[in-house]
Design a protein around this nucleic acid. Structure first.
Length: 477
RNA sequence: GCCAGCGUUUCCGAGCGGUAAGGAGAUGGCCUGCAGAGCCAUUUAUCAUGGGUUCAAUUCCCAUCGCUGGCUCCA
């Protein structure tokens, strides 16, 4: 299989360092606000990568961090006059709830920046010792000029100018605030009145942003990993800095073999932003759409391209998703009674063809849109043969079909709790699905059946309409 | 300003050297007590514009325009 590697600007054959295992790190959110659709896009994109790699037989270890100490968090906590921990805990909890609803698989580890302060201090000390970093006024900076090759990271150009041999001029006064070079970035931030702090060899302070991901990777996955993921906006300088400081620390040639970056959500062809007022929080979208519709929307475009979010496009996703569910429901309701015949054999072949088509698409840098197209093509054929020609199916075919659906669920994660859904015939979640609801639905169905038998259509239609208004789709045979 | 990416039919959205997947919407038809679902057909494409390379370009190269991102916090 091939993946697009941001380091080399091209698709490459995917070969993890260990043939059976994939070590993967994804930059998680800074928890100072509720997750918006962009966070969901990133999270779902890498959940998909992880799922597909697992489907291919790899044992995937995925670490995703929480940045729980940072300027914005401190600022927001001060505004609200609460402790920064209270703030970050609140948003971590919300993030986890939302990602669970979006059917993300659990990560191997979700460390918080503040969990590993000691280790960060150790890494920063090492960087100073090795001559890559310097202390200045209680802060510590990474001197980018000491890192040969810094400017070439993520540069798709030949002959990028690189730094000559350079030693940090610690005997001089810094020219750029506390820094010797404007590009130097902070590893440790000196404490300011009113801010949370940790004790360090350089006095009170807190870690800089870039160092945390490097430290987490090394601490929880090792000095070299296979895949590092994150949003496109993190490429520079965050990932650039991560690579520099990590390899400076470990002395390894590489930090991550493949860097994967996901694209953005746009709204009406414009960037989604608070100032434009076109900002969508996932929690708000959940009020109007099933989380699986959101997930389906997100995987309907390729993870690297930007997706255009409009009310129209999310409704289209809803229609499409429902279309898949409807067909699955219909197959589920069929009672196997037939003998093997030519049509069924052909359909079984179609399952195999579709499976191969999906694998082909996903093997090419996780081509979800093409994979989904394969599913639709197969489902249309399925509908035509099964429900237009009224072919009887066999037990074997039904099993075969549901094994395939289960595979789809493994790869795309779009059919969680399918059995429940099929039993209830629900198109939308209606809150707590318990036995009472199911019984009431059955009751209503029976009443409608009776009415329709006596051709009292106006009444049965009214019941149908009112159920529909409640989010229950009733379809007459 | 510098760097990177994108511009495909009414809409969403693939393809990326041999004249363009899939879905939505719309219209007509089949089916149905009706509706829905489903099926069939049409809408369905001078692939932003202008040059160039090639037997052949939506796909490669150059320029222009438009949009987006990075250069400061950001998924």
């Amino acid at each position: 299989m091939k993946v697009y590697n941001s380091l080399t600007f091209q698709k490459e054959e995917f070969e993890p360092m260990n043939p059976n295992e994939v070590l993967m790190y994804v930059c998680g959110p800074t928890v100072y606000d509720s997750p918006h659709l962009g966070h969901a896009k990133s999270a779902v994109a890498f959940d998909l990568v992880r799922r597909y790699l697992e489907f291919k037989g790899y044992d995937v270890k995925l670490v995703k961090n929480y940045t729980d100490i940072d300027d914005k968090i401190i600022e927001r906590a001060q505004e609200k006059d609460i402790d920064y921990i209270t703030l970050s805990e609140k948003y971590i909890e919300e993030y986890e709830e939302i990602m669970t609803a979006l059917n993300l698989k659990l990560d191997y580890k979700n460390p918080k920046a503040t969990d590993i302060i000691d280790f960060m201090i150790h890494v920063i000390e090492t960087l100073i010792k090795k001559g890559y970093a310097y202390e200045s006024n209680g802060s510590v900076y990474f001197a980018v000029r000491t890192y040969k090759g810094y400017e070439s990271i993520f540069q798709n150009k030949e002959g990028e100018e690189e730094y000559e041999d350079y030693e940090i001029p610690t005997d001089q006064e810094p020219l750029h605030g506390d820094k010797y070079d404007s590009k130097d970035f902070v590893l440790w931030k000196a404490w300011k009145e009113g801010e949370p702090f940790w004790e360090s060899p350089w006095g009170k302070g807190r870690p800089g942003w870039h160092i945390e991901c490097s430290c987490m990777t090394v601490k929880f996955l090792g000095e070299k990993i296979d895949i590092h993921g994150g949003g496109l906006d993190l490429k520079s300088p965050h990932h650039k800095n991560e690579i520099a400081q990590s390899t400076a620390y470990t002395g390894e040639e590489i930090f991550a073999k493949y860097f994967l970056h996901n694209g953005f959500i746009e709204v009406d062809q414009e960037k989604m932003s608070k100032s434009l007022g076109n900002f969508f929080l996932v929690s708000d979208l959940f009020k109007k759409f099933n989380p699986m519709v959101i997930r389906f929307f997100l995987i309907s475009s390729h993870y690297r391209s930007s997706s255009n979010f409009t009310m129209d496009s999310i409704k289209q996703a809803e229609t499409n998703y429902q279309k898949l569910l409807t067909t699955i429901q219909k197959v589920n309701e069929l009672t196997p009674s037939g003998e093997k015949n030519g049509d069924l054999t052909e359909l079984s072949d179609r399952i195999e063809k579709t499976r191969n088509g999906i694998i082909r698409a996903m093997d090419d840098d996780f081509g979800t849109p093409e994979a989904i197209a394969e599913i639709f093509t197969f489902f249309r054929e399925l509908n035509r043969v099964l429900f237009e020609k009224n072919i009887n199916i066999t037990e074997e075919f039904k099993e075969n079909f549901f094994t395939f659906i289960e595979e789809l669920n493994e790869i795309f994660g779009i059919f969680p709790n399918l059995e429940e859904k099929l039993d209830l015939g629900l198109s939308e979640p209606i809150g707590e699905k318990d036995k009472l609801i199911k019984d009431l639905i059955d009751l209503t169905r029976d009443v409608r059946e009776a009415l329709r038998k006596r051709k009292i259509y106006d009444l049965s239609d009214e019941i149908r309409e009112r159920l529909r208004a409640l989010g229950l789709n009733i379809e007459d045979k």
